[in-house]
Design a protein around this nucleic acid. Structure first.
Lengths: 195, 195
DNA sequence: CCTACCGATCGGTAGG
DNA sequence: CCTACCGATCGGTAGG
């Protein structure tokens, strides 16, 4: 049971509508006039709430990055857990963030290259850091003899790839709850790595 | 050792350059003037070789679709092979097509939504059919007791996801030859499914 | 939040 | 393959 969501501020409404449009039509193919129309405004009126189209993309991408990092930190802070267990938590956290806002996740995953510099370079550095976090977990799992793989970097890429495909097929109204999906994905992906 | 490639026709040059631009900048964000400049032409001159920007995208996407289907058909025509073995061949074929033209593959995977109707709907139907082909192989592998998975549809999605992430990191000039990559990916992905 | 508008750029065409 | 150009649309601003 979920409480009714509090009313969104105008700015949050703009973010949400922009996210949906960027997802389905792409950043470059979405015009500010479309966005305004979807909100019941005139195009010029948007600019009393935001600075630019670019700012919208920036906010979406970096908010998601924050969420992914926060989840990863929480998943790996229990130092007494094995690396394999921490990896499971990290996978579940990743899926959780993805399912909490599929539209924003899709923008995060596919529209980031429309970020202008220096945001684009900064964004790529964050992604790299996140990926390294997963790779280190896998490597430690191998050292602890809980996991096995011929190539940890390779395994990391395929693991994240499987996870990041989720926004292309996940439907929030589907009957499998996010926690089930997270569990199932973690199970399947870990089964390919376990000793 | 590779023989020197034959000179490309003007139309093939346009296709190739458009593919590279659509990949790195996206279809919507690529202008015909950029494309012309990359080819050393004036924008208007493009239209003596092609009908529209849309036609370029259409040709790229459907050529790749043809390649994927041809490879899948070849991989699965040996009826005396087990489903698990056919699946291995199909995975290797998929990787082969991806690595033969990473740029076109990336466009195929990410820019198809800019296809105008009815091409877009037709394209989605083809993708669906291809996916079903993989799913049936996995299901038959399970029936033959060579493969095991709690959910064949789920396993299909994650398998294709892992494969389709390849164009985002594969560098043709890297030292791992495509056949090695295909082998390795097949091995890793099948290991998660094998009994 | 609207009206009215800016300069720039878009895909594409006519005529040679 | 180029020159010259079309109408449409773009992101964004000024002034209220």
């Amino acid at each position: 049971m979920e409480a009714t969501a509090p009313p969104l501020s105008r700015k949050a409404q703009i973010d949400q509508t922009a996210t949906a449009l960027f997802r389905t039509r792409g950043f470059a193919a979405t015009s500010m006039r479309e966005l305004a129309e979807a909100l019941g405004l005139e195009a010029g009126s948007l600019y009393s709430h935001i600075k630019s189209k670019q700012e919208l993309l920036h906010r979406i991408c970096f908010r998601l990055a924050d969420d992914f990092f926060a989840g990863f930190a929480a998943a790996t802070q229990a130092a007494d857990e094995s690396a394999a267990t921490q990896l499971r938590y990290a996978i579940e956290s990743h899926v959780w963030v993805l399912t909490q806002d599929v539209a924003a996740s899709a923008v995060f995953l596919h529209e980031w290259r429309h970020l202008s510099e220096p945001a684009r370079t900064e964004f790529l550095a964050l992604r790299e850091r996140y990926e390294v976090g997963f790779r280190l977990l896998i490597q430690r799992g191998v050292e602890q003899n809980d996991l096995r793989t011929p190539d940890a970097a390779f395994a990391t890429l395929t693991l994240l790839a499987s996870l990041n495909w989720l926004p292309t097929w996940y439907k929030p109204e589907g009957k499998m709850p996010p926690s089930d999906i997270a569990h199932r994905l973690a199970e399947q992906l870990l089964s390919g790595l376990r000793v």
